[in-house]
Design a binder for these strands. Structure first.
Lengths: 212, 212
DNA sequence: TGACAATGTGACCACCTGGTCTTACAATAT
DNA sequence: ATATTGTAAGACCAGGTGGTCACATTGTCA
């Protein structure tokens, strides 16, 4: 957590620092990200920075925590209504929400992308601390429940399916981040929806030609 | 390409440099990887290094090219017999070969992993140059052919399926690299085979409960 | 043996890094 | 008016970076 001096700052200045740090950490990994650049961008002196944060790691953890909190907040409403949905609808919602999140908060999504590529073990561990593997746990939970409801075949390997969904999810987000940012992604809504449906159709129906 | 002085080197010395560079580039990304460390590890002077390579980028491209060539060589025999196989068998072979490659050449696989995470656009572009998207092209080609043979349903979105397979492929390799390297992975053959079959079963048969 | 070219060497360069520390300033309390 | 406190500031530090260069060493041919 930052020092209190940081929270005593006028909102504008504090937000400027946060913005600058987010830009830097979504552009470069932990080692390559530069405190000097963040100071320059947010127009504060080096000495001031070290009165707000004890070191680089504290800033990194703080920024990542902000992104994670935002994402949880964004998804919580969707997850709340999960119990009323079939597994297909649950996955669909998860994918679409993920894409919507990346569209609405590309900065946060980019931070997440960068974090997933992070090499520095210390930095990664400091962010994760305890509650990691949430995504995997969530997927597996949904799958097992659907099995019990008889929605999907028992022979499906829950872990394999969970891994598949996770990697697919991140691939889609990465693909989206690549597409957006440059040109406008408006009016692509329909196209994206269709794409998600194609993916889910494969997973649910398989690709093998059915014998009729 | 390295300078001729590099190729005039005795094999031992040249290989030592290559090994050291591979270790460094698979541990750190382009920016963080250190020429000084590579020199120290391979016991050559800084000045000598710059007689073999004009700059860091040349070394990086050279090392990555070696890894790519090795991978292509490794896969080429498998791809040669593709026309005799069904799509399911093709995918299965591709996955198993990929895992075998990561097992036999963890160093090369780690280099590939690091490259997929690379932030530095210049370094990435220098390695890719023209012939990227080979994996995607290969997958799509296989899928389209299988469609024409009537092996899989026409309604399957080729691009979606290709993205699914790619992301799955990298996830499996990443999972394997995480497992191996530390403890021995011997005797895990059966477990890995089963895992691949689970994944392929999902893709081919779907997860939805069949009405009998 | 001597001359010449090729190669090895590490001190050195400018620049950048995360982090410190002394000084300067502003506001408040006495 | 003075002392105390909280903060802004940026010069400075040790250490690392990619890259250079003058010099030492070696090998080869005459």
């Amino acid at each position: 957590m930052p020092q209190e001096t940081f929270f005593n700052l006028p909102n504008d200045k504090r937000n400027l620092i946060i913005t600058a740090a987010m830009e830097e950490f979504s552009k470069s990994n932990y080692n390559s990200a530069s405190i000097n650049q963040i100071c320059k961008k947010s127009k504060i002196a080096k000495g001031s920075f070290y009165q707000y944060f004890t070191d680089k790691l504290e800033l990194y953890v703080y920024i990542m925590t902000l992104a994670i909190e935002e994402k949880i907040k964004f998804f919580s409403s969707a997850i709340a209504e999960f119990h009323t949905l079939t597994l297909f609808e649950q996955f669909r919602l998860l994918f679409l929400k993920g894409m919507e999140f990346a569209k609405m908060h590309p900065q946060y999504a980019a931070l997440g992308e960068q974090f997933s590529k992070e090499n520095d073990g210390t930095a990664k561990a400091a962010v994760i601390k305890e509650g990691d593997k949430q995504a995997e746990a969530l997927f597996i939970q949904l799958i097992e429940k659907a099995k019990r409801r008889g929605e999907i075949d028992d022979y499906v390997d829950s872990f394999a399916l969970s891994l598949l969904l996770q990697s697919l999810n991140s691939a889609v987000i990465k693909y989206m981040l690549g597409q957006f940012g440059n040109d406008g992604y408006k009016n692509k809504e329909e196209e994206l929806n269709h794409f998600v449906d194609s993916l889910l159709s494969i997973i649910f129906n398989g690709i093998q030609k059915k014998i009729k």
